[in-house]
Nucleic acid binder design. Structure first.
Ligand SMILES: [Zn+2]
Ligand SMILES: [Zn+2]
Ligand SMILES: [Zn+2]
Ligand SMILES: [Zn+2]
Lengths: 135, 135
DNA sequence: CATTAAAATGTTATAATATTACATAATGTT
DNA sequence: AACATTATGTAATATTATAACATTTTAATG
C-alpha cells in the first residue's frame, strides 16, 4: 500500500477518521463516522473504533463522554489527552473545548482530601451557549 | 398497588433500583442492576432506565460517564446532581465521589474565556488509588 | 532480496448499552 | 364515578462497542 497519510504518524484509516472528525466541526458519533467514511473504504465498526482509540491516545481527538461523541483537540493535544475540559450547551448541544491554563493548572495540582493527586482528568461543563442564552 | 416505598418520594421500582445500587457499594451497570432485580419483579430495561433517570434527577445517584455505571451520591445529593466529581483508579477501577467544597466552589464560580458560567458540571479524575499505588 | 516479525487492516459475529412505542395498572382529583 | 396523571409492563429495536480471527502491508533482519 502506498503511503497515503501526511507527514505525521497516522495510518491510512486513522487519517481518514481524523479528517472526517476535523471536517465536521461538531462532535461526531462513531457510527456517523462509519457511514461517512464508507466511500473511503472503511466498512466495519472495528476499523473506526481502532482509529478512534489511537487518535485519542495520541491526543488528536477527545471523547465527549456524556455524548458518546468525538471532537478534534483544540489545545495542542492536551498534553496527550490527560487534561480535557468541555463546555456543552444544554439546548443546542454545541460542544467547545475549554482552553484555560488557570483551570488546567488548578486541576492538575488538585489534591483530594486524602492527599491523592491525579494524572488525568476530564471535565464537562453544562450551561447555555451565547446563542441559546439570548433567545 | 400497596405503598411499598419508604418515607421518601421514590416509587416502588425506583426504590428497588436505588437499594440495589446502594447495597453494591461500587459502580453498577444498568444490565447488572437488571439481572439483580429480576427477583424483585423488574423484568425489562426500560424499568431500570426509568428508575435511573429519576434517581439521577433527584440527585440520589450519579452516572459515572466514563464507565457507564451508577453510584449512590455521597454528598447530600450534590445539589440535585449539578456538581459531581469522581476519583477513578486506573488499575482497580475503584470509584469514589469527591466531596470537596473548595473544588466545588471553584468550579461553580468558574468563568470561561468568554465570561460564560455554568449551571452544572461533571469531573472525573483518573489516577492510582492508595491500594494500587502501594503495589 | 528472501525471510521473518510486527503492525495495520479486513471481516463476521456478537456483546453491551439504551430508547421507542404502545399497552395496562395504579393513583390522585373533581 | 369519571377523568387525568403517573407509574408500570412488555416487545421490539436502535445505538454503541468489542471479540475473534484472517489477511495484508510494512518494517526489520540476515
Ligand atoms: Zn484537547
Ligand atoms: Zn446552545
Ligand atoms: Zn453526589
Ligand atoms: Zn486501585
Amino acid at each position: 500500500m502506498t503511503k497515503m497519510h501526511k507527514e505525521n504518524n497516522l495510518t491510512k484509516n486513522e487519517q481518514i477518521v481524523f479528517d472526517l472528525i476535523e471536517k465536521s466541526r461538531e462532535p461526531v458519533k462513531a457510527y456517523s463516522i462509519l457511514s461517512n467514511v464508507k466511500k473511503k473504504g472503511i466498512k466495519a465498526p472495528p476499523q473506526v473504533y481502532r482509529a478512534l482509540e489511537k487518535l485519542i491516545k495520541v491526543g488528536k481527538i477527545h471523547k465527549v463522554e456524556s455524548k458518546n461523541s468525538f471532537v478534534v483537540c483544540k489545545n495542542t493535544n492536551c498534553e496527550v489527552s490527560n487534561a480535557t475540559a468541555f463546555s456543552i450547551c444544554q439546548v443546542c448541544e454545541k460542544v467547545t473545548e475549554i482552553v484555560n491554563s488557570k483551570l488546567s493548572k488548578y486541576l492538575k495540582s488538585f489534591q483530594d482530601n486524602t492527599g491523592m493527586r491525579y494524572k488525568k482528568y476530564n471535565l464537562e461543563f453544562f450551561g447555555l451557549c451565547q446563542k441559546c442564552k439570548s433567545k
